[in-house]
Amino acid sequence: MKIERELLKEKLAEMKKAGFDYLEKITAVDYSDHLDVIYLLENIEDGKEEIVEVTMPADDAWVPSVMKLFLAADWYEREMSEMFGINIVGRNAERLLLEKWDGKQPPLRKSFQWGMPYEEGAK
């Protein structure tokens, strides 16, 4: 289901109460003009899966943190913010998950330029 990011936290809290209390993955897809953030939720007792999608413009990328609802979101959110440059609102800015990564250019965005540092070094 697709929802607005402002309503995300309430929606996920609602779903957690309804039994979807296992967060499998938070991931994002860059469609050049817009970004999708995807929450995969699972009801472990029934084996039902629910996909929550949040769409946002590529130049205004932020989602609220759902770490208070699911502890599993901690590392997924950090990974996503590093890889896609999506700001996670509502949690402390922590150190980057990956060691020795400057995090300036989000690598999984389609606008990522390959081999930038080396080309610059060659000039």
């Binding site: 998950l97 990956l98 060691e99 690598p107 999984l108």
Partner: peptide
């Protein structure tokens, strides 16, 4: 602290 074996497979 992870990332010493990061190969960017997803990219």
């Amino acid at each position: 602290h992870i990332g010493f074996l990061h190969r960017g497979v997803e990219k």
